[in-house]
Design a protein around this nucleic acid. Structure first.
Lengths: 338, 338
DNA sequence: CTGAAAGCGCTTACAG
DNA sequence: CTGAAAGCGCTTACAG
């Protein structure tokens, strides 16, 4: 059932039209200097054979391809939202988008992967790339824009105002009367994870609540990583009355663990996430919205300008966040704990 | 700021290692027959230069690339869910995924687009492709699997049991007491749109309710297409008490129009969608779940087998659907209309 | 206005 | 064990 017939190439068209491949190439690319008669012949041959130029061959030969790349190591709701923004920004821009997704990494992570694929694409296929939540600082001969970059990266990037977002989230909890607030951190190589923890600490400090290091769990943004941490936090006799997780994916897992332990949210436990993925809305999770759509949109806009060479604005964009209060937060239980 | 330095090529490595490119290629691809000494030299040159082979050059030369393609003309929640399923199926399969998205078509549609890009990719880059809600029957020298194929297509495909899903949806409305039920159809070249309309008609017929053709609006699955149709339906003096839209995207627009007209849902109007995209959950939209994740998963599984040549199962998969009742449906208003 | 030729970065028989 | 050479499908000076 495997089809082995060769593709229709430019030489096939040339043969049928009775011209050279150079001429066919001119016709395909709309270059001047082809007689009307030849033009017609070639067009009819193309039509007849259903010829389309090979993206690969074309981009190997040309320096500019008008294709932008996006590499992401996992494909969750977060990435999906980002993608919508990217597509919106690229709409009618003349650039197409290639998303390269490594199948071997679904749900797991690997350091060199992005750099590897960035290099494999950018030599020839793409004019520039967007990298989503990278593992390190990337290098490429073509422009790169990072969404949610690593800490200390100096390359162009787009990220949310994570510090302000996290601070607001914890202040919300504090305002409700919580004092023992747990935190589940994200992968700490990321600037976002770092800032969200900073926000957590700052808000507590501001309220005069000392930070209890044993209330901080070291997750990595991978939802699964939150499970054991949440379990540990919630099984303590002196468990926190609220947990702030550095991502919605992790917060959702906290919710699951709470349910599993017979804790009711928000009566026994308040939970706040970060991101505002679509699932947060349906679950009633209070969270910090960081408009992933906007993140994607801005990154694509920036990459476009970088590629065409007319970028003037600052290259590290920070987008505002906002707290979305839903039903996973409430005042702490007033009754004494067992 | 544009970086113009050329990529590190295999010849660069060869030069540094003092061998031929043929040898470098052998090392890169892990072929036998390289002396330990040469191997070490080449490896160190690769390391030193940060060399990665060009995906484009490699796939131009090779027949098999271990890259699968996915082409989609728009990128909405539906596609995002499908993608998650595809990634899951490809996880650790040895296949990578390239998603080709045309920026010029965000929100609009175009006939020849998919065929064009399918051909451009499949000649050289990909070993096979998934096409999401295609515009026509696709042809390619490599295997193709369609998700939600066009009507009458005979190629491999995966789709939901649209007839059963739609029937259940309308029966739900009928069961609540609705008799005047409007329908907003999808793009009629798609088998799914056709079957959903069939389900609508069948359920009404079964209940002895005559089909009123003026209650059927001809949409095209594009959410925007539902706006004028919903408006027309809801501004009639004898407006329907319920509307079944062939997709959630369109149903959400019906909700918007209802709000705009001062109609309250579900008190004045019941609305049912189809798909169960994440937004449906947060909006409380009653809908038919078609597990887009599963659609993507099965399509990818099938494509994989097709490419490796060990496919045995039937090639047109139909997946079950289920009705998800939320808060957008209720009995029709009992009071007489103004 | 058109074609022969070189070459983009790789791989693969074919010799040796 | 290793290299010279051909070629994947295209584009682009260079001649004519």
């Amino acid at each position: 059932m495997t089809e082995v017939n060769a593709p229709v190439t430019m030489s096939d068209v040339a043969r049928v039209a009775g011209v050279s491949t150079a001429t066919v190439s001119r016709v395909v690319n709309g270059h001047y200097g082809v007689s009307p008669r030849t033009l017609a012949q070639v067009r009819s041959a193309i039509e007849q054979l259903g010829y389309e130029s090979s993206l690969v061959a074309t981009s190997l030969r040309r320096s500019r391809t008008n294709v932008l790349g996006l590499v992401a190591h996992s494909f969750q709701s977060y990435t999906a939202e980002v993608l919508k923004g990217v597509m919106k920004a690229l709409s009618r821009s003349g650039f197409d988008l290639i998303i390269y997704a490594n199948s071997d990494l679904y749900g797991s992570y690997s350091e060199g992967w992005e750099q590897r694929h960035l290099t494999r694409l950018s030599g020839t296929l793409t004019d520039g790339c967007i990298v989503v939540t990278p593992w390190g600082e990337m290098h490429s001969r073509t422009p790169i824009v990072a969404i949610d970059p690593v800490r200390g990266a100096t390359a162009p990037s787009v990220m949310a105002d994570n510090l302000a977002g996290a601070t607001t989230a914890v202040e919300h909890l504090l305002g409700l009367g919580h004092r023992r607030i747990g935190f589940i951190a994200g992968r700490d190589s990321l600037a976002s994870a770092w800032s969200r923890e900073e926000g957590y600490r700052a808000a507590l400090a501001d309220a005069g609540v000392p930070v209890d290091p044993t209330l901080i769990g070291r997750g990595d943004f991978n939802p699964e990583s939150a499970v054991p941490l949440a379990r540990a936090l919630l099984q303590r006799a002196d468990r926190p009355s609220a947990i702030f997780a550095a991502s919605d994916g992790m917060a959702l897992k906290v919710l699951e663990v709470a349910r599993e332990l017979g804790l009711s949210v928000p009566a026994d436990l308040s939970v706040v996430g970060f991101d505002n993925i679509p699932e947060a809305a349906s679950t009633g999770l209070t969270t910090v919205d960081q408009s992933m759509f906007q993140l994607g949109y801005e990154a694509a806009r920036m990459l476009k300008s970088l590629v065409t060479g007319d970028w003037a604005e600052p290259s590290q964009i920070v987008l505002p966040t906002s707290l979305v209060i839903r039903s996973s937060t409430a005042p702490p239980p007033s009754a004494a704990r067992p």
